[in-house]
Design a protein around this nucleic acid. Structure first.
Lengths: 170, 170
DNA sequence: TAGGTTTGTTTCAAACTTGAACCAAGAGCA
DNA sequence: TGCTCTTGGTTCAAGTTTGAAACAAACCTA
């Protein structure tokens, strides 16, 4: 099987993609570290919780939404809990379960820092994209996500598919 | 100044973008960790070196190309050096300078693992994008990069701009 | 050319991530 | 019921990243 190398055009796209994603994440991390005292991921966790009904989610669901491993999440929630922004409760129905709840303080931090964050996201990204490009970006990334998530799921038979709610800006 | 929140469409795009970039980086990191015993960034460092004339670059240039901090690079090159894939030399013209050189062994690792890596990038990304979308992606990301790099540069007067060569797939 | 600033790089401690191993508790089934 | 398998979560050690501080060499400029 001979390698299907990238075409020059694909190479350019790939390089640009890598560079852009690194730079964007970096800029956002710095901004949030500055203004909210936490990296982007931690902010996203708070944001995900704030969107959930009752401002709470089971660890596994939270991990799925934020696209990180459970172990990474355990650590992150540990810190957020220490900071008083999140509280852990145990799940009544499933005694194995652990539920992360956004505290009022956590909500306050989120509300206080959200405007700055959105402004950053805007100035980094959306202020420079046309309507059309926003659509293209959504299309491209959405497709990627769909495919990548399917891969990690049983392929043989029907998938018992459940969906949940959710809005806002992580 | 009232906050310019994201429109629903922008929110969707942003979420998809975050999810996609996380998932893609993760998948690539896992693949490379498996097959090359190193995370994506480290592979990219080797790839950057392999593209450079004489297969070598000064630390700062290497950091600039890979979009990471100097300190992070120092650590990474430290490990690659320990593994024998990179060698450090000191710059003759500038005694402060340190030069990272890709060793033959490093080149071998790269050549051995490149096909698998490209295949992954393809199956993750390009196999599912139309020609048009590849163009869009390049356009969007390229624009981002240009803007983000300008920001970290003196804005007032002329920038003594130097460019170097480079091809391939990081 | 001395003194002050900038540039190139490393160092260090604290924070974070990774992946494998572990420990319950639910589920399926003989 | 008693077994085994799966699932939800945490733990732990090893590896990585961060950002500020430290250094040394190069570059002004008076």
């Amino acid at each position: 099987m001979t390698t299907r190398w990238l075409t020059p055009k694909e190479q350019r796209a790939w390089r640009a993609y890598i560079a852009a994603t690194f730079l964007v994440e970096d800029a956002i991390d710095r901004q949030l570290q500055q203004d909210a005292g936490m990296p982007h991921l931690y902010y996203s966790i708070l944001a995900s919780l704030s969107d959930a009904p009752e401002r709470q989610l089971r660890m596994t669901d939270l991990a799925e939404r934020t696209k990180i491993t459970r172990s990474r999440l355990t650590y992150a929630v540990g810190r957020l809990e220490k900071d008083g922004l999140v509280r852990r409760e145990n799940c009544r129905w499933d005694k194995r379960g652990s539920i992360a709840v956004l505290t009022d303080e956590g909500m306050e931090v989120l509300e206080r820092t959200a405007p700055g964050h959105v402004e950053t996201v805007r100035s980094l990204l959306f202020d420079h994209l046309t309507e059309e490009q926003v659509g293209q970006l959504e299309e491209i990334c959405g497709g990627l996500v769909r495919r990548l998530q399917e891969d990690e799921r049983p392929t043989t038979d029907e998938v018992p598919w459940r969906r949940r709610s959710s809005p806002s800006c992580s």
